[in-house]
């Protein structure tokens, strides 16, 4: 097992109220598994990833990475096993460092020494890796990341997250801030890199069609609980409408986001740019 969560709970006190972000989550992820995670706003998806990465400490329950109990282990100590891409393209890289410098930081995790990471040989290797993205970034090694577009930054962030060969990749709606064409490209890059590295992956998405087409297992979160955990075979037999029906059964049919996806998305839509774009409801504060 790459990852195991046992009885993970996390609440936040908002004013006088106690909001339960994770209400007892048990979950396991095997080597090389690609799981898509869906759920309405506030379902606890980001909190789940934060708990796994170490940014949030659960109130109760345990987190195991590669069989080790890492519940109390700070983010930077478990970073060697984890690659992560955030929703906001600004979060993935240091804007005033060059593309090459960001990649150099990403390619070796943990203890930093006084060696020069950007040797000529290393730059050549990075250039090659960038060329693999097919976005022309290999010509922009010495440019500051601040000069890149959102899509370019997100593609770079995916490459950075997978560069040091982590065991687990965490993606939190990492294409949500991009236009459909860029989202498509970054998604294709993600799939390539995940397949090439045989990475266990947890991908949060708001798009039902993405969740169905990508990955080999589907998890639905609702109010801090895992409502559905569909293995590959059942997932393949599912269409977007089936997913929406399942949502309705579970009593979360009022989620306008999910309803609108039934109207917009053709069943089993192939992932073409824009074809199955689900309008995202504006996020709460």
């Amino acid at each position: 097992m790459i990852l195991k969560l046992a009885g993970v709970r996390k609440s936040y006190s908002v004013g006088a109220q106690l909001v339960s972000a994770l209400a007892g989550v048990d979950f396991a992820l095997a080597q090389g598994e690609f799981v898509t995670v869906i759920g309405s706003n506030g379902a606890g998806k980001t909190t789940l990833l934060n708990v796994i990465a170490g940014d949030t400490r659960p109130d109760r329950g345990k987190v195991y990475l590669l069989g080790r109990d890492v519940t109390g282990c700070p983010t930077h100590r478990r970073a060697c096993w984890i690659g992560r891409v955030f929703q906001d393209p600004r979060q993935g890289a240091a804007p005033h460092l060059t593309v090459a410098e960001n990649l150099a930081l990403a390619s070796r995790k943990g203890r930093r020494g006084l060696g020069f990471p950007l040797t000529r040989r290393r730059r050549a290797a990075l250039r090659e890796a960038l060329a693999g993205l097919g976005m022309g970034l290999e010509e922009r090694l010495s440019e500051q990341v601040a000069c890149l577009s959102g899509g370019e930054r997100q593609a770079l962030a995916v490459l950075m997250a997978t560069l040091a060969r982590p065991r687990l990749l965490l993606l939190d709606e990492h294409t949500a801030a991009l236009d459909p064409a860029n989202a498509e490209r970054v998604l294709a890059i993600t799939e390539d890199l995940v397949r090439a590295g045989g990475l266990a992956t947890l991908m949060v998405t708001h798009r039902m069609d993405q969740a169905l087409v990508l990955g080999d297992r589907l998890v639905m979160l609702h109010q801090g609980r895992i409502l559905l955990d569909l293995p590959s075979a059942e997932k393949r037999a599912l269409a977007v409408e089936d997913l929406v029906r399942l949502f309705r059964q579970e009593g979360c049919a009022e989620d306008e986001l999910l309803l609108s996806s039934a109207d917009n998305a053709p069943p089993r839509a192939p992932l073409t740019p824009g074809a199955a774009a689900v309008p995202r409801s504006p996020k709460g504060p």
């Binding site: 700070p74 930077h76 240091a94 804007p95 943990g110 020494g113």
Partner: peptide
């Protein structure tokens, strides 16, 4: 230009990224 130096510069720029790549 060393690894530590890059991490230092990135810290003022994006501490979350530094943390995610294994440095406090």
């Amino acid at each position: 230009r060393t690894e530590i130096g890059l991490a230092l510069r990135a810290t003022g720029d994006n501490p979350g990224m530094v943390r995610a790549y294994g440095t406090s």
